[in-house]
């Protein structure tokens, strides 16, 4: 049903194999689960809506896998703090660490320290600068997500000349940069589609509002807007309302809205027909995979090899047309 269900089932199979070793011992039901008795530490760069969603999903995964203790540390956008928190986890001899790094270079030091302490460390969502150095990483595929929406825009407008506003994320982060690159690659080769405003926002709604207002001011005939994160949808609605163009898909003055994340705002936007297409991030798979993998590495002492080291899970496209089927895979619809 969910696209990630497939990988989940594979992993469930692997769990079963691992569980067989324990099968002979009659024990409390929870003890049969792979994560029994483990303490997993999760180190986050910051808290926001996406992280809250991920935390909920991690807790679910921990419960399914029988992990009794999960500690969550938040670095609040401070690289030194995060390094200290990871060390604190290592000092407590936790069984494994899952990290969303704030600084894609400083995490390399954390990886080295974890290895020296013989504690598995896996990464999620934001990749280290050199992804080859981490034993396991699970993230979305921001380039592919942007590309999908770019191609969708091409399908939606055909040959019609269209001006586009590009509401970018933070341009110092891989996800922000790659979503933007992917989108631009998706519309490349279609000279009728032209980006008239690049608006960097650092993922904050206030610059998104100001930028969208200014873009509509400079281009009253704006035809579409690409939004790098659902967190910036409310200000986009606000700016569209101001010029009387907040309309349902297909209405004459409608501005095509495309957005990435699949949070509750994106879900509601597509559900109510105000948004033309969204790409949902595979948070359920990412959180489950990382939790699963860190447990396995702690148990076996072996890390995955070759292609299995990095999972780049493409997001799920959802539109008003496929919403009833697709919504089950959108984390913001189902939590």
């Amino acid at each position: 049903m969910i696209p990630g269900m497939h990988s989940r089932m594979l992993l469930a199979g692997a769990t079963l194999l691992g569980g067989l070793a324990l099968a002979g011992i009659p024990a409390h039901a929870a003890d049969n689960k792979p994560g029994a008795g483990m303490h997993i530490c999760i180190s986050l760069d910051k808290v926001n809506a996406s992280r809250e969603g991920q935390i909920r999903l991690w807790k679910q995964a921990a419960q399914e896998l029988g992990v009794p203790k999960v500690t969550i540390e938040v670095a609040d956008e401070d690289a030194q703090r995060q390094s200290s928190q990871v060390e604190t986890c290592l000092a407590q001899r936790v069984n494994g660490v899952i990290e969303i790094p704030w600084d894609d270079q400083a995490v390399l030091q954390d990886i080295r320290r974890a290895r020296a302490a013989h504690i598995p460390l896996v990464g999620m969502d934001q990749a280290p600068a050199d992804v080859g150095t981490i034993d396991y990483f699970s993230g979305s595929n921001p380039y592919a997500d942007g590309l999908k929406l770019g191609e969708e825009l091409v399908k939606l407008v055909g040959d019609k000349p269209t001006k586009v506003a590009d509401i970018q994320g933070a341009l110092d982060q891989y996800n922000g940069i790659e979503r933007d690159k992917g989108f631009k690659a998706g519309i490349a080769g279609h000279p009728n589609i032209r980006i008239v405003a690049d608006i960097p926002t650092d993922w904050h709604p206030e610059p998104a509002l100001a930028g969208m207002e200014n873009a509509l001011e400079a281009n009253p005939d704006l035809g579409a807007v690409f939004v790098a994160s659902d967190g910036m949808l409310p200000p986009v609605w606000s700016a569209l309302q101001k010029v009387g163009r907040y309309t349902k898909v297909g209405a004459p003055k409608h501005v095509i809205v495309l957005s990435i994340d699949g949070d509750p705002q994106g879900c509601a936007g597509v559900k109510s027909d105000y948004m033309d297409a969204g790409v949902a991030q595979p948070f359920a798979e990412m959180t489950y995979d990382t939790m699963k993998m860190v447990i396995e590495m702690a148990k076996t002492g072996k890390e995955p090899t070759g292609k299995d080291r990095v999972a780049r899970i493409p997001g799920l496209m959802y539109t008003p047309a496929n919403f009833s089927k697709a919504s089950a895979g959108v984390w913001g619809c189902s939590e």
Binding site: E77, S83, Q105, L108
Partner: peptide, 11 residues
């Protein structure tokens, strides 16, 4: 930290 950061000073 093993790297340089232009925003290191914010916190």
């Amino acid at each position: 930290l093993g790297d340089a950061e232009p925003t290191a000073g914010d916190p």
